[in-house]
Design a protein around this nucleic acid. Sequence first.
DNA 1: CGAGATTCATGTGAAGTATACCTTTAGGCTTAA
DNA 2: AAGCCTAAAGGTATACTTCACATGAATCTCGTA
Length: 400
Amino acid sequence: MAEKGLTGFFENFLKKDSLFAKKAVLQSSYTPGEIIHREKELNLLANILAPCLRLEKPSNVFLYGKTGTGKTLTAKYISEHLTTIAKNKKLAIKIIHINCKLSKVADTEYRLIAQLARELGKEIPPTGLPTEEVYNIFNSAINKENIQLLIVLDEIDQLVKRAGDEIIYNLTRINAELKHSQITLVGISNDLLFTDHLDPRVKSSLSEEEIVFPPYNALQLQDILRKRSETAFKPGVLSPGVIEKCAAYAAREHGDARRALELLRVAGEIAERNSELKIIIDHIDEAEEKIEKDRVLDIVKTQPKQQQVTLHAILSFKKTEGIFTGDIYDVYKKACARVGLRPLTQRRVSDIIGEMDMLGIINARVISKGRFGRTREISLSIPSSLIHKIASVLEQSLGL
DNA sequence: CGAGATTCATGTGAAGTATACCTTTAGGCTTAA
DNA sequence: AAGCCTAAAGGTATACTTCACATGAATCTCGTA
């Protein structure tokens, strides 16, 4: 009987018209054929990078701007165009795009260079080689090929925060040793104050040119949403006011277009799942919750065990603020005993708490309680309904 | 009463350790001449 | 003798530990009005 129901469900699913015509258009990986409200920045970047078509070395560029202001998009758009032109004219130009934030891909010097070398088709083991050696492999790989290499380092602030600014210095210096090829760096950062803590030498070489991406305002966001939704959705699916609301939500923060698009997409998915024919404003509220939930849940699930236990300890306090490191550590140790995990030292747990603050699943700030010492005060910005959900996911994954 | 000293709990940096993985080298075994 | 495989030696990156010192405001202390 259940089987029959299931078959019926699938048949229904097929019969049911999707609200989407082309969902990919709303996904963050999508690069539209035309970028609106970023003409100035686009031209600027194109001008700066164009010399590589004449096989001259362009200046290194630094792109600033808050999340969702089109930095990555612009960079990708230009890389695609450059690559096509280069291919047509048989020019040796290679562009490597690396996201330094994606955990474990490029969060240390070794891993970054290793990743670069891998992009050039070299096999690099995850550990064991001297970093120097990996540099050599990378160097010889490009030197042999005689190419213009553009390295786009997305979220470069994360990398430097974790691994220091020597990496960038080294990368810029590689050029001196290359005879045939040349390297140009394109750094992308969300942190507007990023270069302030940079070694002056690194700073001057990295930001020979700088482009600032201002946030979109609500009207621009609406334009973007309209444009994309034209191809993404079937006609007449969007109720009036939906786009405006999405734009308003995203503009409320700081003009984050990625967020606006995601809201719209998820709202569509929710409407579709409920077998509704139109996307209405209520779906957007629902979408906002779901996005936050998915984001946090995804991070939580992919964390290593120790981090999960720590987080579980934090969540087991039935309050959302005023939690201190010492208390967490006590609970953490007990939890470790129950799970059968060797507890880490408080020193390390302290660092883990800091890491999770960076990930944005908790807020931790160092406070002094005067006579009663100094500690991190942790607070949760997660709604309580979600806390339970996360806690149970953690318990499941830890086998509690 | 107020300025300066004290205190607490833990932040934070540096150095050391364990583990996992890599390359090189030396020895042993096999094979072909 | 040459070639090939294997195991040991020597080296590295990373995650973690150990050690030692730094922090900073509530609280205490003590001199002064």
